Amino acid sequence: MNEFPIIPIVLAAVVLLVFLYFFPISLWITAIFSGVRVGLFQLVLMRVRKVPPSLIVNSLITATKAGLNITANDLETHYLAGGNVPTVIKALISADKANIPLDFKQATAIDLAGRDVFEAVTTSVNPKVINTPNVAAVAQDGIQLIAKARVTVRANISQLVGGAGEETILARVGEGIVTSIGSSISHKEVLENPDKISKLVLQKGLDAGTAFQILSIDIADVDIGENIGAKLQTDQASADLRVAEARAEERRAMAVAMEQENRAKTQEAKARVVEAEAEIPKAIAEAFRSGNLGIMDYYKMRNIQADTDMRDSIANPGGSSNTKPSPNV
C-alpha cells in the first residue's frame, strides 16, 4: 500500500495560511458589504507595513456607519505615528453626536500629544469635579483658616494641545484662595461669607492657557486653624527675651572682666607699696652710715609712731590701726 501523502498536504496548508494571512479575503468581503471601499492589494500592503488590517478596517467601518468622512490612509498614518485609532474614532463619533467641533486632524493631534481625546470629549459633554487639597491661609487678624474647594471644569477642546492640565488649575485655585483669605480683615468675615472666596477666585480668570474651562468654584469646607498672629508674637517675644538675656550676659561678663582688671591693678599697687616699704630700712641704714640720722632722732621717730598708733587705737576701739609701725633697723 502507498503511504498517505502527509507532507504535500502540510505544505499546502502552510501555503494556504500564508496566503490568507497576506490576503485577508474575509476582511475584504466584510468591508465591501459594509460600504467601505478598501482594495485587497491595500490590505496586503498593510500586512507588509506591519499594520493590522482588521484594526483599520473595523475602525473605518465604524466611522463610515457614523457618517464620518475618513479614509483608510488617514487611519493607517495615525497608527504608524503611534496613535490610538479606536480611541480617536470613538472621540470623533461622540463629538459629532454632541455637536462639538472636532475634526480628524485635531483629534489625532490631541491623541499624539499624550492626552485621552475620548475622555476630553466626555469631560466636555459631562463636566467633572476636581477636589482641591486643604489650602491653609491667614486672615489679617492672624487666624489661620483651612479651606477645601470643589472645582467644576469642562474640557476645552481647542486648548488640549499645549494647554496646562489639572495640576495648574489646582495650583491657581489654591493661590486664589490664599489671596482671598489673606485680604480679609477678619476670619469671621470669611466664615460668614465663604462664597466671597469663590467670587474673587472666579474673577481672576484662572483657566487662561489651560485645557479646561472653569465653570464654578464651590467652597466645600472652612475650618479654623492656629492663631498664627499670637504664635508669631509669642515667638517674637521669646526672641526679644533671648536677645535681652544675651546682652545682659554680655554686660555681666564685661563687669566681671572689669572687676578682675581692677583687682589686678590693686594687687599691682599693693606690690609697689610693699616694694616701696622695703626700701625704708635701707634708707634709714644709709642715713645712719652717712651721719644724717642720729640714734636720738630714730627713737623720737619711733615714739611719734607709737603715739600715732595709740591715738588710732583709742579712736577706733576694737579696730586695727591703718598705720604700720616703722620697721626696725
Results as ranks from 00 to 15, higher is better:
residue 159 Q to N: 14
residue 160 L to V: 13
residue 156 N to E: 11
residue 136 A to G: 09
residue 160 L to K: 04
residue 142 G to T: 13
residue 147 A to N: 09
residue 149 A to Q: 05
residue 144 Q to W: 12
residue 133 P to F: 10
residue 164 A to V: 02
residue 162 G to H: 06
residue 160 L to P: 02
residue 150 R to N: 14
residue 160 L to S: 03
residue 149 A to F: 07
residue 144 Q to F: 12
residue 144 Q to I: 00
residue 144 Q to M: 15
residue 151 V to G: 00
residue 131 N to T: 12
residue 149 A to S: 14
residue 138 V to S: 02
residue 143 I to L: 14
residue 157 I to H: 06
residue 158 S to C: 03
residue 134 N to G: 08
residue 160 L to Q: 15
residue 151 V to W: 03
residue 151 V to E: 01
residue 155 A to M: 07
residue 161 V to F: 08
residue 133 P to K: 12
residue 157 I to E: 01
residue 145 L to H: 13
residue 150 R to S: 13
residue 162 G to K: 04
residue 163 G to A: 05
residue 145 L to I: 01
residue 131 N to S: 14
residue 165 G to H: 06
residue 155 A to L: 05
residue 159 Q to T: 05
residue 132 T to P: 04
residue 152 T to H: 06
residue 131 N to E: 14
residue 146 I to G: 05
residue 147 A to P: 00
residue 158 S to I: 11
residue 160 L to C: 06
residue 136 A to W: 05
residue 160 L to T: 11
residue 137 A to Q: 09
residue 145 L to P: 13
residue 148 K to W: 08
residue 137 A to N: 09
residue 144 Q to T: 03
residue 156 N to M: 04
residue 137 A to T: 00
residue 140 Q to D: 10
residue 164 A to D: 10
residue 134 N to D: 14
residue 149 A to D: 12
residue 141 D to I: 04
residue 156 N to D: 15
residue 141 D to C: 01
residue 132 T to G: 06
residue 165 G to T: 02
residue 152 T to F: 04
residue 152 T to M: 09
residue 157 I to P: 00
residue 134 N to E: 14
residue 155 A to H: 05
residue 152 T to G: 05
residue 152 T to Q: 13
residue 132 T to E: 01
residue 131 N to A: 13
residue 147 A to M: 08
residue 152 T to N: 09
residue 137 A to W: 05
residue 138 V to F: 06
residue 164 A to Y: 05
residue 157 I to Q: 09
residue 155 A to T: 11
residue 158 S to F: 08
residue 160 L to F: 02
residue 151 V to R: 01
residue 161 V to K: 10
residue 157 I to N: 04
residue 150 R to C: 03
residue 139 A to I: 11
residue 148 K to I: 13
residue 151 V to P: 01
residue 163 G to F: 04
residue 131 N to W: 08
residue 146 I to M: 10
residue 154 R to M: 11
residue 161 V to Q: 07
residue 154 R to W: 05
residue 164 A to L: 11
residue 134 N to T: 11
residue 150 R to W: 04
residue 144 Q to V: 00
residue 131 N to Y: 11
residue 134 N to L: 12
residue 133 P to Q: 13
residue 158 S to H: 11
residue 138 V to A: 02
residue 162 G to A: 07
residue 154 R to G: 08
residue 144 Q to P: 12
residue 131 N to M: 11
residue 160 L to D: 00
residue 137 A to Y: 03
residue 150 R to I: 01
residue 163 G to Q: 07
residue 143 I to S: 03
residue 132 T to Y: 10
residue 159 Q to K: 13
residue 137 A to L: 03
residue 146 I to H: 10
residue 145 L to V: 01
residue 145 L to N: 12
residue 149 A to V: 15
residue 159 Q to A: 13
residue 157 I to T: 06
